[in-house]
Design a protein around this nucleic acid. Sequence first.
DNA 1: GTGGAATAAGTGAGCCCTCAACTACGCTGC
DNA 2: GCAGCGTAGTTGAGGGCTCACTTATTCCAC
Lengths: 162, 162
Amino acid sequence: MSTHGTTAAQGEQPRWLDAEEQRAWRAWLYSAQLLLDRLDRELVRETGIPHTYYEILVALSETEDHMLRMSELADRCLSSRSRLSHAVSRLEERGWVRRQVCPDDGRGQLAVLTEEGFAALEAAAPVHVEGVRAHLFDQLSPEQVAAVRDVGETLLRHLGPR
Amino acid sequence: MSTHGTTAAQGEQPRWLDAEEQRAWRAWLYSAQLLLDRLDRELVRETGIPHTYYEILVALSETEDHMLRMSELADRCLSSRSRLSHAVSRLEERGWVRRQVCPDDGRGQLAVLTEEGFAALEAAAPVHVEGVRAHLFDQLSPEQVAAVRDVGETLLRHLGPR
DNA sequence: GTGGAATAAGTGAGCCCTCAACTACGCTGC
DNA sequence: GCAGCGTAGTTGAGGGCTCACTTATTCCAC
């Protein structure tokens, strides 16, 4: 048993996967897990920055003034508020991000990228991009890259905006 | 700055991503994160079984006698030995898996799926497959599904077997 | 058969994430 | 001007994972 199978333990008959779907699903799942894992490990090993931290630094660096509201930052990093709050606390300890009360909303906080944080990001970016090239783009033909984008954007329309 | 950029802080010039690659990478990353997250959450919510546990139960159920050596099980689940050891301990507490010394190698342990574990899997499988359908296959054309498989298997040849 | 390397698995400290409170502020209507 | 509700963010307990280390067994050369 797994995602295919012949026994249904429910009222509605489950729409089991056929052999082709099974292969597609497993290939997607394993490759996604391995790729995410590999990129994270290499980044940590070579720069000491986990991918989750990296994403936060990137999001901040992409704004005009290197700062974002906590909730906006959480959305851009596909992170829960709580997770982001913990993560920013840890980044503060490293001196890479600083918190600042939001001028136009007393409830809000701004996460601000520090000089040190920007420097850490600059050091990590080449490592990260090299990983993405080596393990993704270098392995795929232009047609496959186009398909990756197409499938990804299709799924995002379903799963996203949120 | 991010995975594109114009400043290189290294000897070797980083091979930055162009705009198209950037889009492909982000689409892939976000869709992968959202899909994995969504499937796990739905499975936990409706069955109380996290996806990592589910994968272990599936791997065991797919063998002839519903048992596997710990290290073989770890490989099939793309899990570290340590992680699997912890996970199997938790599954033992739920009564879904049982450990048993390996007859032909005194160092080895066999993880054995129990009746209760199999029943839990049978209950969870329809929920899981429905999630995979709803969030993956129902969203994609047959051509896109073929591309997913093709890309996944290509990446696996690079990332996998280990 | 014995010493030593290799292999199988488990353990525990520490980090990260989730979930469910909780605090603090803002907004509206009366 | 304050009651009540919604929103922004934080907190802490608890679970899961990683990493380095430990224990137990097997393999092999001699």
